[in-house]
């Protein structure tokens, strides 16, 4: 009994490590997209959603935290303010997605959960930037940021759904 359990744990650990590594690479190679400078689709969120679907809430938060921290290391000479903004955005998005998955799973599909993640990510970044610059003129950009966050989340959700359906047989049963 004991050996079986540790076997399952080891398999889970390997899958989670692969997800974190994938998340770091996706985040590093992902090209920025217009129209707002520095904005990205957020491909790393795919691995957080996959961790959530395959393993559960606590595993997903571990993947989200490790992915964000390790990505920062790999990026090297990043300034603390943009670093805080990007890490803050992705961690808040992960928390929001995990909470919605935990509490309102019946009402939202994985695409819906991803849309919420995208919106929360941009909302968090917006308020950090607003706090740092103290520039009230920036409210002008809030609606378009929320919209772009939602659209990015939708795209990420669709990709996750396809990947989940294609890999679930292997991850859940395969050896």
């Amino acid at each position: 009994m004991k050996s079986t359990r540790s076997h399952i744990k080891l398999k889970e650990l390997i899958y989670l490590s692969i997800l974190i590594a994938l998340g770091i690479v996706l985040n590093l190679i992902e090209p920025p997209i217009s129209p707002i400078p520095g904005s990205k689709l957020g491909l790393a969120n795919i691995v957080i959603l996959l961790a959530l679907l395959f393993f559960g809430e606590s595993e997903a938060i571990v993947v989200a935290l490790l992915r964000a921290i390790l990505s920062a290391f790999f990026k090297g000479m990043l300034h603390p303010i943009p670093l805080f903004t990007s890490v803050g955005g992705s961690i808040m998005a992960a928390i929001a997605m995990i909470l919605v998955y935990d509490l309102y799973r019946k009402h939202f599909s994985i695409v819906g959960i991803s849309i919420i993640g995208g919106i929360v990510n941009n909302l968090t970044q917006f308020f950090i930037v607003l706090y740092i610059t103290k520039n009230s003129a920036l409210w002008y950009y809030l609606p378009i940021l929320l919209f772009l966050g939602g659209i990015s989340g939708w795209a990420i959700g669709l990709i996750t759904k396809i990947l989940y359906n294609k890999t679930k047989a292997v991850v859940k049963n395969g050896s």
Binding site: H79, I81, P82, T85, V129, T133, N135, A137, L138, Y140
Partner: peptide, 17 residues
């Protein structure tokens, strides 16, 4: 009017009001 440029690392922002 309404547009801004933000330089986050430098904590500088420029807005047209």
């Amino acid at each position: 009017a309404g547009e801004s440029i933000v330089c986050l690392p430098n904590r500088i922002s420029i807005s047209i009001v």
